[in-house]
Design a protein around this nucleic acid. Structure first.
Lengths: 121, 121
DNA sequence: CCGTATCCGATCCGATACTG
DNA sequence: CAGTATCGGATCGGATACGG
């Protein structure tokens, strides 16, 4: 993905961030601290390594995620939320999560919530 | 669009809502009250009537937007935010807006903000 | 373990023409 | 004014194979 350089409104800009199928989920997965690539992949059901890396790169280009590599062997890489907008976005994503939970409860999809240990009411 | 019936996590569900290029912008445009189709189209720069109607229909299927038609001539239709999740989502979208503004300020894109009268300190 | 490249079907979205 | 139908290019994302 190429970072755009023109937007007609701020939401169009943010949309570039959240439109991808995985970006909000990745950010949400990083809300409690640093994770390596493989930890992220374990945490995010169904994502392929290709998509994970691709989305992480784009999130880094926007400064929403940062990455730190500790030298040595084996190579260890950690991903974590970027300071400013990364943490702003998390607040929005937490609400998106609540909206999703609310919808799922109202439509009888509580099985998945139970399975994942997500609280609702 | 067909409403999905299975999700592996709540964010995947919400993503179905916000992935479209226009949905957050439409919701944000409705945050202060009711608007007719043509008012919406005037407010949202660059959207075609087809996209606007299509996205409005999908938002209504999710209960995020409601519609009221007043009989008489000419036909007048008003769109407005759905009560519960519609208003939750607005809170998230307001943050998305702030993130977008922040990004644009930091990247020297203030011209558009000025043109639209968007405050950024 | 981390990261890149390619192929290909599915979907998105803009243009456009048409109806009540 | 409100709403529908169709077509086609662009983009997205999954599978898969390969390299550091």
């Amino acid at each position: 993905m190429k970072i755009r350089e023109q937007f007609t409104c701020p939401l169009e800009m943010t949309h570039d961030i959240v439109k991808g199928k995985w970006k909000t989920i990745i950010l949400y997965s990083l809300k409690d601290g640093r994770l390596s690539l493989s930890e992220l992949q374990k945490k995010i059901e169904g994502i392929t390594q290709k998509m994970l890396l691709e989305q992480l790169r784009e999130l880094r280009e926007y400064g929403l995620v940062e990455k730190e590599t500790t030298e040595g062997y084996p190579l260890h890489v950690e991903y974590f939320l970027g300071d400013k907008r990364g943490k702003m976005l998390i607040e929005a994503i937490k609400i998106l999560q609540l909206v999703g939970v609310d919808y799922m409860v109202e439509h009888g999809m509580t099985e998945i919530l139970d399975k994942k240990g997500i609280r609702y009411k």
